[in-house]
Nucleic acid binder design. Structure first.
Lengths: 225, 225
DNA sequence: ATATAGATATGATATTTGTCATGTTTTGGT
DNA sequence: ACCAAAACATGACAAATATCATATCTATAT
């Protein structure tokens, strides 16, 4: 089992504020877990007994709406923490987490987190900052959902995936989402998402190869009205 | 100038975790401010040098979208803190705050907040909890925006106003929003909001008197598809 | 008390988006 | 390599929502 203080991933989340000793405490009680693409890490309504630190891979956070459709609220990158929100307010989890690729995560038990929260004010300030950042993002998503067209939202979703996860050597987006997933990010019907992507293809804004998507004309996507 | 430790409003926000001494510190440096209905407390992009504690009145938090329309992201009640998010991440403010009624607010300077954040872990844990709660709400709003119809969202907006702000002796909602404001909460055109409200009236779900709205059939509103 | 700007209301119509049907392509398991 | 089972694609149509035009109401300042 690798030690947390040697883990690069830690740089990207609030755990970076912990001291060497505190990290040793976490190393001692964390458990590593491999999750296959498509598997569920936790489900809406479950109670969590700790947080997950994403060491590798990508997952989606979704919520089931009353109409029976899943909405993707956020995509989670390598280095992010999962479940911190519900842990802090001591509630069942509000969103489900489903792996979009094979993942490796570390589970850190609740008590260990709260211990550090009490004793290390830098850690809690950092968590606070992370949460504040997430809240800002969420507010911005609300505005986009409410005010922008499906076409605009889908263009932004593509750009978001590009900037968050990058592209491979051939220029295709590193994270592969199904059309249904794109629809679920944008909040539209799968057929509508497919249609818009087809239109983007016709307009040479993107190229596709199977499920893979390449952005050809970033500026064109930005101009979408 | 009233002392903070005698202020009832404090019970409703994170300031409740502060000690008597810490509250005295705040009393010493806070400034009271009266804001008239329609006035702006702060505007998107401004940098804040403290937080506002809402002692009385109601305001809306809005963000201007690229299409030129304002989106109401949140309504703020008596007892809420304003500007805590931007203060913590040290960014310019992401949303504008505009009074929907005459208001009384207390301004607490940044340094005072950070002092308490450093020294009182209960206070920072409490802020963290508040932020976590706001984030959950925001995520839920995203799902509603993406998955529900204008009719459903407007019905929910009415119920939200009722539960957050209550009703007067005649049963009318205590907070009076214009049709344009309702449209801006729901993320639709003003005419659409008006039409849906008219339909609710025809279906006897609500009654209106000028700008005032009374909910007649809460169950009926819940059933809207 | 009255004028008037702003808010509310409603019709007609255009546009966007959803739904259902159906065919084609891709993917993953043997 | 082959065969389901998904996923993708597209047409036809329906429903929801936006836009534009215009009329009526209402709150507020003089």
């Amino acid at each position: 089992m690798r030690k947390c203080d040697q883990c690069i991933v830690r740089q990207f989340n609030s755990l970076k504020s912990l001291s060497k000793e505190e990290l040793l405490g976490i190393s001692g009680c964390k458990t590593s877990k491999f999750i296959k693409k498509g598997e569920t890490i936790f489900e809406e309504g479950e109670s969590l007994h700790g947080v997950y630190c994403v060491k590798d891979g990508v997952c989606k956070l979704t919520k089931l709406s009353a109409n029976g459709k899943d909405q993707i609220v956020k995509l989670v990158v390598k280095g992010d923490l999962l479940g911190q929100r519900s842990l802090i307010v001591n509630e069942t989890v509000n969103l489900s987490a489903v792996a979009l690729s094979n993942m490796e995560v570390c589970f850190i038990p609740k008590d260990e987190i709260f211990l550090n929260l009490k004793n290390n004010s830098n850690f809690s300030l950092d968590l606070l900052k992370q949460m504040a950042h997430d809240l800002k993002q969420a507010d911005n998503v609300i505005v986009n959902m409410a005010q922008k067209s499906v076409k605009q939202r889908l263009a932004e979703a593509l750009m978001y995936v590009q900037s968050s996860f990058g592209e491979d050597k051939d220029g295709f987006l590193n994270v592969i989402l199904s059309r249904e997933d794109y629809a679920s990010v944008v909040g539209t019907a799968t057929e509508s998402a497919i249609r818009v992507l087809s239109q983007f293809k016709k307009e040479k804004l993107i190229t596709t190869s199977g499920k893979k998507i390449k952005i050809n004309d970033l500026e064109g996507l930005k101009r979408i009205e």
